[in-house]
Structure formats: structure tokens, C-alpha cells
Computed example of a mutant assay.
Amino acid sequence: MPQYDLPDHELRHYRTRATAPVDLEAFWSTTLEESRAAWWAPKAELVEAGLTLVEVYDVSFSGFGGDPVRAWYRRPAGVEGDLPTVVRYQGYTGGRGLPHQAGFLPLAGYATLEIDSRGQGTGGGYVGDTPDPHGHGPSYLGGFMTRGVLDKDDYYFRRLYTDAVLAVDAARALPGVAADRIAVHGVSQGGGLALAVASLRTDLRAVMADVPFLCDFPRAITLATEGPYLELAGYLASHRDQVDAVLATLGYFDCAILTGAATAPALMSVALMDTVCPPSTVHAAYNAYAGPKDLRTYPFNDHEGGQFHQEAVQLEWLARQLGSADA
């Protein structure tokens, strides 16, 4: 796959042509207030995961409208005290996975809260356990991108973004979490969710978003050649008279718009051969991001991005933002 998007000097300055809805702030303020009014304290139960270095807890917490959302809370085994914690979100169609899929962060001394994606959890080897109890109108090939897309109040991602924001509330309520040292992280859809959370709250210490999805919808749906953006393009190919209505809804969920309100330090990554999340759409979110930021570029990679090379960068960066586990 060639580098097909804008040249480097244009990427550095590229901005989305999408505009913020006039009631964007009120929409999200009301949405979060309503779901917090239905909030209940998270429940955590220790489970046997077959790991000697990591403790694993099965968590249920209050998401959109008080709906229960599942997560795994992991801590380095035998470590006392409150730990810096990373709340992690999943890629498209993925779920929280199995208890033993701990990743590298607990081995580095961090606690993690691995959040399920409601209604997803059948792709990428990461199973999910959280249903989405809300119905929806027609959707393209059953995909999540078009569920309720004609109405911002009914759109699937209103529920998913709210779950993601309230996951940080849940993390703060768990024992052993340093409430003032919380970061968010995700890859692809998870990266987009991390950016959305950073845009909708002001109390994070760090944000890590790799090859983020859910950015600059107007450009993405005309440029991506693989992946979930094609669901929107396919839907609009059939519903030719709904383009304006769909784009109006997407404006409430576009991270290239939302990140103008983000303030926490951010580390992002982009791959210049990415056919799922075109590089310009990632740059649109990065260039709009209002807080301190750094972007790592992988010129010859597709949507796999930096992978383990990026993890090494994150370990060094995260230690500066959150401090060591015994700080």
C-alpha cells in the first residue's frame, strides 16, 4: 500500500471541514448528567486467571443510563497502596477479552481497567460480555456505525462514549486506584474513545491514542478503503437523501471537533499507509487537540501502526506523566 494521503507538510496543518454543532456542549453535558443521575457504585470480584504476577477482578460498573458495563481490573500481584491506573478501550468489534489477557502495563507497575464495548466483542480475539439493550433503526450490514445514525440521541456511539467517560468515574471508585493519576488509552476505536473521554472531562493526567478511529467523518468516509467507515459510505449509497442528516449526527461524535476542548497531555500515533483510519483524519484530531501533545509517525505501516515499538515509547512517556507505581 503506498502513502496515498496528503503530503507531510499538508498533514501538519490539515483541519477538518466539519463544524461543531451549536448545541454540542449542551448535548454532552445533558447526556452525562442524566447518566450520572442513574449511577451506582462499581462491583469488583477477584477471579482466578492463572497468573502469578497479576491480580484480576471482574468489574461491573454504571454506564449510559445506568446500564451495566463489564471490565477487568488488573493490578500487579502483591502490591499494596494506590496505583496509577490506565483505563483502556477496545478496537472495533472487540471486547474486554479473557481474564488472563493482561498486557504489558500491569507488568510495568500500573493498574488497568479494561473496558468492554457494549454490543461488541466478537472480533480480534477479544470477546465481550456487555449487551446493548437499546434498539435501533436500519443499519448497514448490522454494523455499529449506522445504528441510530439519523438521531444524535439514539446513535450507538452516544451510549459508547458515555460508557467510556463513566469508566473513569468507576476507576476512581475502585480500591487501590490513585484517583489523581488516571490515564486513558486505546487503539483504533479505542483510540477514538480515549480522545473523546479526554475531550469530555478535565481531570485526566494522560491520554494515549493510537491510530485513532472516529475522527473527521466527512473525509474518512470518502477516503478509507477498508474498515468501519465503509459502513457509513455503504449506508449513504442506499440512503441518498440522508447525507446531510447523517453528517449532522456525526458532528456530535467527531473527535476532530471534540479535541478542541481536550487539555490533558496526549501521546498519539499515526501510520501513513493506514487504509482504515486515513492519516489526514488522525492529523485532524491531533491538530485540533488543545492540550500538550506529541505525535509518533510510522511511515510504512498500515492500521497495525507502531505496535510494540509504540508500546516502548508509551512506557517511557507514561512514567513521566503518571510517575512510578511507588511514587
Score class of each variant (00 low, 15 high):
T297M: 04
L295K: 11
A18S: 14
L315A: 14
S117G: 05
V282S: 13
R205G: 14
A20W: 08
G119Y: 07
C255F: 11
E45Q: 15
A264V: 05
D8T: 14
Y89S: 06
F308H: 15
V87A: 09
A325L: 06
W40E: 04
W317V: 00
S35H: 03
L150Y: 13
K43E: 13
A41E: 12
Y298A: 04
P2M: 06
N301K: 15
S117C: 07
M208K: 03
A44V: 03
P278Q: 09
C215G: 04
L141Y: 14
A266R: 07
G260P: 13
L51R: 12
E48C: 01
P212N: 08
V47L: 12
P131M: 01
W72S: 02
F217L: 04
Q90R: 10
Y155R: 01
A271N: 06
A312R: 14
F144T: 02
D132P: 15
L295Q: 04
P212H: 06
E114M: 06
T249H: 11
P76E: 13
V47I: 12
Y286R: 09
T263P: 00
E311L: 14
L267I: 05
V47S: 11
Y252L: 01
A224T: 02
Q189N: 04
N301R: 15
G227M: 01
Y155C: 02
D210S: 15
G135I: 02
A325T: 04
A325H: 10
E25W: 15
G65M: 11
P278G: 08
A245R: 12
M1F: 14
P76M: 06
I257Y: 12
C215F: 00
Y73G: 09
W40Q: 09
A206S: 05
L214W: 14
Q310R: 09
L315C: 11
E33F: 13
E226K: 12
T202I: 00
G192P: 07
H136K: 03
L247H: 09
G192Y: 11
L6Y: 10
F64P: 14
L113W: 13
Q3G: 06
K152E: 12
V47G: 10
L315M: 14
A171C: 06
M208H: 10
G109C: 01
Q189E: 05
G323R: 06
A319W: 12
A325I: 02
T112R: 07
D67A: 09
A44L: 08
G91V: 02
G128M: 08
G121E: 06
P131K: 03
Q120W: 07
Q101I: 00
A245Q: 13
V276A: 15
R205W: 05
G128S: 08
L6F: 10
A77G: 03
L295S: 09
E311Q: 15
M145C: 05
G63R: 07
V282I: 13
V313E: 14
P279S: 02
E34V: 12
V47W: 13
A284G: 04
H309P: 00
P99I: 03
A262K: 00
L195R: 02
L318C: 08
G137T: 00
R320N: 08
D8N: 07
S29W: 13
A319I: 00
V168Y: 07
A170Q: 13
E226I: 01
R296W: 12
V197P: 07
Y156C: 02
A171D: 01
